[in-house]
Nucleic acid binder design. Structure first.
Length: 285
DNA sequence: ACCTCGTCCTGGTTGC
DNA sequence: TGCAACCAGGACGAGG
């Protein structure tokens, strides 16, 4: 489940390896990857394109080309991107989960791997990227536009659990199940709290918790639970720093109470029943 | 408009 | 031991 820190790590590591290079040969091995478009047509369209920049928007990897087209890659659950300076020997057998290979003009390969095949590649024409993302992504959590005011406006009047609201990419772009739990732990808020019940101080705490959880994830180069890898094949280390995610039955790092698991927003959800508040606080906003 | 749930997909784990 | 059922969840669409 690559979330913002994982995608950002991939972007940062891959950018110097692809920027200024051209896509010499493109093979798309899984027809689902480019749905509903024909993978052979997409591959043909990509060949010859020169990369200007590699960017990240929320959980999307964005390959910007000199032609102002853009390749939008979403890794979903198990997608990963790998870079190697020469093609795999092939003698040891090909990875059955390789879904696409891009050979660059210096002979190196960028390989897309995805066990569960949820990931997508979408080629957008000039001018299509911003409208596409505008209806899907809210502000970048580490950017200026992610203000307390914006978050308050997004949450107010809503009865859904705050966890579900945070998983909605239009609230803030880049949070997934792991970092949403971590953010709410930092904020000291129960994941079941109705989003609209949060006071001003609590909203500020949520904003701060989101940013802290994501910044730590980036510093640790993401969390490798199973499938996530950096483009060089290395693992992230954030999984060792989780406060609550996946830690049912372990003591809360803040108060020692045992972490519990529940469901919120249709997802497995871990939290501390003692120091993550369920009742609305009485604050003077 | 809001909210929940089913769908896609595969491998690993659980339970009988 | 074998094998079916279940679980994991990001985005999206259906339906209440």
């Amino acid at each position: 489940m690559p979330e913002l820190p994982e995608v950002e790590t991939i972007r940062a590591q891959l950018a110097p390896l692809v920027e200024g290079r051209s896509f010499e040969q493109v093979s798309i091995l899984d027809s689902r990857l480019t749905r509903p478009h024909d993978p052979r047509e997409v591959a043909a369209e990509l060949e010859g394109e020169e990369v200007s920049t590699l960017e990240r928007r929320g959980k999307y990897v964005v390959v910007q080309f000199e032609t102002d087209r853009a390749l939008l890659i979403h890794l979903r659950m198990t997608g990963s991107l790998h870079h190697a300076h020469r093609s795999p020997p092939g003698t040891t057998g090909v990875d059955p989960y390789r879904r696409a290979v891009v050979t660059l003009d210096n002979g190196s390969d960028v390989t897309y791997r995805d066990v569960r095949r949820f990931g997508t590649w979408l080629l957008l024409e000039p001018g299509e990227l911003d409208p596409y993302l505008a209806v899907r992504n809210g502000p970048e959590p580490l950017g200026r536009k992610f203000t307390t005011r914006f978050l308050r406006d997004r949450l107010s009047g809503r009865n859904a659990p705050v966890k579900a609201a945070l998983l909605d990419q239009r609230t803030v772009a880049g949070l997934g199940n792991i970092y949403a739990d971590e953010a709410l732990w930092h904020a000291g808020l129960h994941p079941h709290r109705p989003a609209g019940s949060l006071g001003e101080v609590e909203i500020r705490s949520v904003r701060g918790g989101i940013r802290r959880a994501l910044e730590r994830g980036i510093a640790r180069q993401g969390a490798t639970l199973r499938d996530y890898r950096k483009p060089d094949g290395g693992s992230g280390s954030m999984q060792h720093e989780f406060k609550v995610y996946g830690r049912e039955g372990e003591p809360c790092p803040r108060c020692g109470t045992l972490i519990e698991k529940t469901r919120a927003g249709g997802r497995g959800t871990w939290y501390c029943p003692a120091c993550q508040r369920l009742g609305p606080s009485r604050e003077t906003a």
